[in-house]
Design a protein around this nucleic acid. Structure first.
Lengths: 138, 138
DNA sequence: GTTTCCGTTTACGTAAACGTCAATTGAAGT
DNA sequence: ACTTCAATTGACGTTTACGTAAACGGAAAC
C-alpha cells in the first residue's frame, strides 16, 4: 500500500499512506502492538472503509512512541509526552503547566543520561579487566 | 540498626550493617520490593536469625539494580548486568562471551544516549515556542 | 469461483513487578 | 508480663503491554 498512490487527488507530496503492516515491518513491531497503541489513544490513523490508513503524522508519532519506550517510559507517560508535541495550549495557565511538564521530563532524561555515563564507564573498567585476563591466559 | 554496631568483633570499617528498612528509606523503595529482588536472585543478604542483614556489598547491588531499572532494563536483564560486575569467568571462552555481553549492553546504552539527546533537543524547541507564546500573551 | 492473503474485531491469556493483606514471630521498651 | 513495633512468610490481587486464537470481510491471484 505504500506504493501505487499516484491517483490520490489530495496528495501533497508529504502525506504518503502506509498500511499497518508497512509500519510494523519498518519499525520491527507487530500489528497487534500498533493497534494496541491506538486503543490506548496514542495513535489515530484514518480509515478507508475499515482499513487503517497511516500517514506521515502517524508514522512520526509511532517513532516517538518507540523512542519513549526505549527510554523506559510507560505507554501512559509516552502518551503525555507525545501529546506535548502537537497540542496547542491556549491560555497562559496551560502554558505554564506545560513548561513545568517539560522541565520534569528534562530532569528524568538528565538523570538517565547520567546513569548511562556512569554505567558506560564501569563497563569500560570491567572490559579492560577482562582483556587483561584474556591476554594473560594466552 | 545502621547505628549501634560498635560491639561487633568482625567490623572491618567498610562492612556496616543495614536493616531492610534502612535501605528502603535510603533508596525510596518498599521493603516488599527489596525482598522481591531477593526472590529473583538479585540480592543475598545475610541473616541474623531470620532477620535480613544487608552489608555494603548488598547496598551497592541494590544501587545497581535501581540504576538498571531507571534505564528501562527488566529485572532479569539487571540480573545479567550486575552478575557481570562480580562474577569471575575462569576460562577464555567465558571471557569472550562476557566481552560480547558487554558490547551489547554498550550498544543499547548508546542507543538510549542518542535517544535522550534527540528528545532533549526537541524539548528545547517546544519550550522555546511556549516561551514565545507566553510573552506574546503578556 | 475459490483459494490465498492481509486486515479487523472480540476475547481471553500471560509475564513482569510489585502491592496488599493476614498470620506469626522475635525484640525492645516500660 | 504486657504492649508495641518492625520483620517475615505466604498467598492472592493488580497493572502494564502486549500475545494468541477465533471468526469474519474484502480483494487479488489463479
Amino acid at each position: 500500500m505504500a506504493m501505487m498512490m499516484q491517483t490520490n487527488p489530495s496528495s501533497d507530496a508529504h502525506n504518503t499512506a502506509y498500511s499497518i503492516s508497512d509500519l510494523a515491518r519498518e519499525f520491527g513491531v507487530t500489528t497487534r502492538a500498533i493497534r494496541f497503541y491506538e486503543d490506548e489513544g496514542l495513535l489515530r490513523p484514518g480509515r478507508s472503509g475499515r482499513q487503517r490508513v497511516y500517514r506521515t503524522r502517524d508514522r512520526v508519532r509511532l517513532k516517538l512512541i518507540l523512542r519513549g519506550k526505549r527510554l523506559g517510559f510507560s505507554l501512559n507517560e509516552v502518551g503525555e509526552i507525545i501529546n506535548m508535541y502537537d497540542s496547542n495550549p491556549g491560555e497562559a495557565g496551560q502554558l505554564r503547566y506545560f513548561l513545568e511538564q517539560i522541565r520534569q521530563r528534562r530532569e528524568t532524561l538528565k538523570q538517565q543520561h547520567h546513569d548511562i555515563d556512569v554505567t558506560l564507564q564501569e563497563l569500560d573498567t570491567i572490559e579492560a579487566q577482562c582483556q587483561d585476563r584474556l591476554t594473560t591466559l594466552s
